[in-house]
């Protein structure tokens, strides 16, 4: 999976991606021949009714799920033929996830939660600790570093989750309803953090129900029944 370095700046390309689930006898086309190109540094929102395939799209881009057909390139790496171990390595190095329900590990402090990707990757503490400190500072969590998740507010928890997502300097940040569990003030804070990161160059893809949040993105995608029906750039 050698990376082809070239002029082509495109970093993510989905072509003819299909993902079908079976509910009993009935086939549900969560993704139906989806084509999508995402350039470096874009800010994209994905909206649409429940069951339109938003989350399936995010899982496919995040390599959490395998499409039934089609090809998906990330940084010019074709992923359809990769083994699970290789997909895990790409998730680790190129993709950051932010979930609606944070997915923090309750027994670990904020700092330990953020450090987790580097711990799993076997990065030495001498390299790890400065990186974690930097992320904590960036997200304004330095004084919360040793708190457990249940000692933090919802907004703080989501910021810890964002810290964990950006620690490895991923190419793309995938956020699934990042404000879904937050009050409006905390939600606004989290969005502000995500947009700041985007301004610093990270690609941001947000899946949301929230129309106001969706409208903030420079590129807005609308999905219905597993197809992209609108793709608007400002």
């Amino acid at each position: 999976m050698k990376q082809v370095l070239g002029y082509d700046p495109k970093m993510i390309e989905l072509s003819e991606i299909c993902r079908t689930f079976y509910l009993g006898e009935q086939a549900v086309h969560a993704l139906n021949k989806v084509n999508l190109r995402i350039e470096q540094g874009e800010y994209i929102s994905v909206m649409g009714p429940s069951g339109s395939g938003k989350s399936t799209l995010l899982n496919a881009i995040g390599l959490l799920d395998r499409p039934n057909s089609g090809e998906y390139l990330i940084d010019n790496i074709a992923t359809s033929s990769l083994k699970e171990e290789q997909r895990a390595a790409i998730r680790r190095d190129k993709i950051g996830f932010v979930f609606q329900s944070y997915h923090l590990i309750g027994r670990l402090s904020a700092q330990e939660n953020i450090a987790l990707p580097m711990v799993l990757a076997g990065v030495a503490p001498s390299q790890r600790d400065p990186a974690v400190k930097q992320v904590l500072a960036k997200l304004g969590l330095t004084d919360r570093a040793h708190h457990l998740p249940n000692q933090l507010s919802g907004g703080q928890r989501q910021r810890v989750a964002i810290g964990r997502a950006i620690l490895m300097n991923p190419s793309i940040l995938l956020a699934d309803e990042p404000t879904g569990n937050l009050d409006s003030k905390s939600g606004a804070e989290v969005i502000e953090v995500l947009e700041q990161l985007n301004q610093q160059g990270i690609t941001l893809l947000v899946v949301t129900h929230d129309g106001a949040l969706g409208k903030r993105a420079r590129r807005r995608i609308r999905m219905v029944d597993g197809k992209i029906v609108d793709d608007i750039r400002q």
């Binding site: 959490l64 171990e85 895990a88 998730r91 680790r92 996830f97 590990i105 990707p117 799993l120 964990r164």
Partner: peptide, 16 residues
């Protein structure tokens, strides 16, 4: 199970 899912999402391979 959720924790396992998370570990996998942030790059832990099955062997780990």
């Amino acid at each position: 199970t959720r924790e396992i899912g998370l570990l996998k999402a942030i790059g832990a391979p099955a062997s780990q």
